[in-house]
Design a protein around this nucleic acid. Structure first.
Lengths: 346, 346
DNA sequence: ATAAAAAATGTGCTCGAACACACTTAAAAA
DNA sequence: TTTTTAAGTGTGTTCGAGCACATTTTTTAT
């Protein structure tokens, strides 16, 4: 019943040679109707599963997968991704899949373009892109498509049907999750939605989260809340935020749409009298520290490590085992507080 | 640089035959110091990774893994586990690993014992047990050890160093997580810790959760809360609970330590005037429905599906790729509310 | 010095799928 | 009927690791 049948077994049972069986299995034609029927009869009775091990043995091609990632030394947000990729590298090392990372400067479009050119020169079979620059990515993807290179993206979504698969999170929903948590901590008052970012690369990202956040309060008709949006940019994050605090002395909660919640927490830790609910994103060390201190109340885990890992592993498994690549992989929106954070940090 | 070296390559480089290289790689002895040195020199320079595909090709042994699981038709709690196992079955079908499930009646120790005997007759290479019956499991594990069968457990932990690996959750911590959420919904009042179970099989399980729950309030010195424990057993869950409600009219919150939170929610849905915070376990359909209705506030996801999957997949990968089996795999304590539940339901 | 034993080394086959190529049989054309 | 072409079928090799066995070299004993 659970015996593993081989092509040779089938050939024997059908009274033909393994070559003929092979032709039937792969629709290579050149098979007489009589032989076809005999073989199909056998195939209908038994449950043939080709031995993937043997199939791949013959395949000496080394598949090349390139990952385009912002340099984590410039923006440490991307560090977990490197770990995720390295996990995949380790996993697929014994197989004929070669994974390389190409870093670029997340503040320089030029750097992104030249990184793409470098990748193209490596003639990869597939690439995984963190599409920080929208327009430039669209163009790069076009070139990859012409060269028959499979493209996966992660973290940020871009609209292009040349992209095979996107790994990420439903940002709108994650904003709603944040809102539901905020509504649990507070029952009324002013809440600020704060966008902190050096560049405005994540504009769409942050907007989606804000939309989701606001939708929750609107839908539930929670009129006792007042939502205010605040944009902060690199050199003067703290000063501008302090201004905002002075102008809004009754602020009760802050939803930070990026991983920079720790910056707000740092500022607030200097003001002892303020008791403000903070919800942010990502389990980076500084955030977790403030979680432990009780200044940060919730973090939403975007699990970039797993995003990056899944981005390449689906590609590798596609090449190795001809697994299908799903169009989108949406990771769960993990709710983290001080009590369960440990289990999400690797 | 990233070329894949084969044993033949190494043999050629070292000026010996592949047989000798093989002996060195596997410490099979019978190698002259001169040859050993030459080969080691080559191995130090290049980065040899044996081709696992080729290695496993020759290995025609079909590994047998048996899963001992309570019949999900008797207790639907175990249904997700079946799905997890079936995922693993699908994944490893093309390889020489055979996974079978042996069901037993979770209310009958006799059934568990006979299931173990049936499994033993199949002469498995490894088993994964849901150790519902503590004493019986310990004894069964002893027998498996004597027959050199690897034993993994999941869901419940048992103390036996004959068990190779446990997959589960930190129950104490999960109780603390529940407490932290309760403390967010309520700021004072009486909270009931409710243990619901047909049999008292999960005694340790539930106790650990209660300990964790209580520890949170004790540690934070939250004296405005009053914690009460309530045990409910099958035939008269509702009546006893209604009694309890009458005797404790000021009850503000309930923490249900099993997956039966929906039973409490059902009863409460009949009493319109009560507004009680509910936190329970497991994303079973009935619970999720009450989550959507707003009667249940939080669920803690124990992810039995993944527990079962990991339980067998670590075994399969151990056999196929000689991966190490970790001693314990602790799954994260996922916090679920109505906003993020979708992403955890498969 | 020669035979016997031991140690070291090399050869060749296996696993299952895939595919090139050789071969046989049947059908169509001369 | 014979030749040519096409259709159908079978054989043999490859992939890399692993291991049995044959062969060669070295060491030890007689």
């Amino acid at each position: 019943m659970d015996k593993k049948y081989t092509i040779k077994d089938i050939a024997q049972m059908a009274g033909v040679s393994k070559g003929t069986v092979d032709r039937v299995l792969h629709n290579r034609g050149k098979v007489s109707p009589a032989a076809l029927e005999k073989i199909n009869e056998v195939l209908n009775v038994i449950d043939y599963e080709p031995n993937l091990i043997a199939r791949n043995l013959k395949n000496t091609k080394i598949y090349k997968i390139c990952v385009l990632l912002p340099d984590p030394e410039i923006d440490s947000y991307w560090l977990p991704c490197v770990n995720g990729i390295q996990d995949a590298v380790k996993e697929f090392k014994p197989y004929s899949v070669n994974i390389t990372i190409q870093y670029f400067n997340p503040e320089s479009k030029k750097s992104f373009v030249s990184a793409n050119n470098a990748v193209l020169n490596l003639e990869p079979d597939a690439v995984l892109i963190a599409p920080v620059f929208h327009k430039e990515t669209i163009e790069a993807v076009k070139v990859y498509e012409e060269s028959n290179v499979i493209v996966n993206t992660f973290n940020n979504q871009i609209e292009s049907n040349a992209v095979k698969c996107f790994v990420g999170q439903d940002l709108y929903k994650s904003g709603r999750v944040a809102a539901s948590l905020m509504n649990l901590i507070l029952s009324e008052g002013q809440i600020a939605i704060v966008h902190i970012d050096e560049s405005l690369k994540n504009a769409v990202h942050m907007q989606e989260k804000e939309k989701g956040f606001r939708s929750y309060f609107e839908e539930k008709k929670l009129n006792s809340f007042l939502l205010t949006t605040l944009k902060l940019k690199h050199p003067n994050v703290e000063s501008k935020f302090l201004n905002f605090l002075e102008e809004n002395p009754d602020l009760k909660g802050i939803f930070i749409t990026t991983s920079k919640a720790y910056q707000i927490a740092t500022t607030l830790s200097g003001l002892k009298d303020k008791k403000i609910a903070l919800i942010g994103y990502d389990l980076i060390e500084k955030n977790v520290n403030y979680l432990n201190e009780g200044l940060l109340h919730f973090l939403i885990h975007q699990n970039q490590k797993r995003q990056a890992y899944l981005g390449v592993s689906t590609l590798a498994e596609h090449f190795l085992y001809s697994k299908e690549i799903p169009e989108t992989i949406l990771l769960p929106i993990d709710i983290i507080n001080v009590e369960n954070a440990d289990f999400y940090i690797y």
